[in-house]
Amino acid sequence: GCCDFHKNKHHKKLRYGFRELSQLARESQFTVNEVEALYELFKKLSSSIIDDGLIHKEELQLALFKSPHSENLFLDRVFYLFDEKKNGVIEFDEFVHALNVFHPYAPTEDKIDFAFRLYDLRQTGFIEREEVKQMVIAILLESDMNLSDDLLEAIIDKTFADADADNDGKINKEEWKAFVLRHPNLLKNMTLPYLKDITTVFPSFVFNTEVEE
């Protein structure tokens, strides 16, 4: 009856029908078949620890770093940006929206914006010197690379001399945009070439497809 449905609401996995899938295709670079292939990926990721049709932070962590439990700065930021509704889980529509930014054909503007939000660790509207330092230190630790503090400061000095046009010690959105347009290779990690061929990476979507394209 009606009440059973409501009782089960939180345990019931969301089903995505043709309407929802084509809506997601309309608001992204993906075709309906590609959205379906992404749904295969989403199902895999969202059931790796808790099979509830939602990606929990530990599941994203497991997918990215093969371990559900190590602290990672980047993971925290990515999860935060994927989780549009800020309810602690990534739903399928949020997954599609975020990956859309990483599509090879997504507007550069969107990639610039996403990278800015990613690196603005404290969400102050600026990428601050301390944040850049924190990220570089995190990377050095992970890769077992050793850099003296002097050298690290020199790298950051040089970076800010180039990026921080108004010299106020922090990079604002406009400065970021100008900087990245001068160094487009900095946006490389904002593009996932696989997304262009997602239906070949996850061909099993054909077993569940709602539409033959």
Binding site: A63, I139, L151, K158, T159, K188, L192
Partner: peptide, 25 residues
């Protein structure tokens, strides 16, 4: 030559700032 590199180059090149692993490749 790390000093010839800018900090964001280090960050964006790092394996941990990359989503490629999502695809299990």
């Amino acid at each position: 030559k790390p000093v010839s590199m800018n900090a964001f180059e280090l960050i964006s090149r790092s394996q941990s700032f990359n989503l490629e692993n999502l695809f299990g490749k």
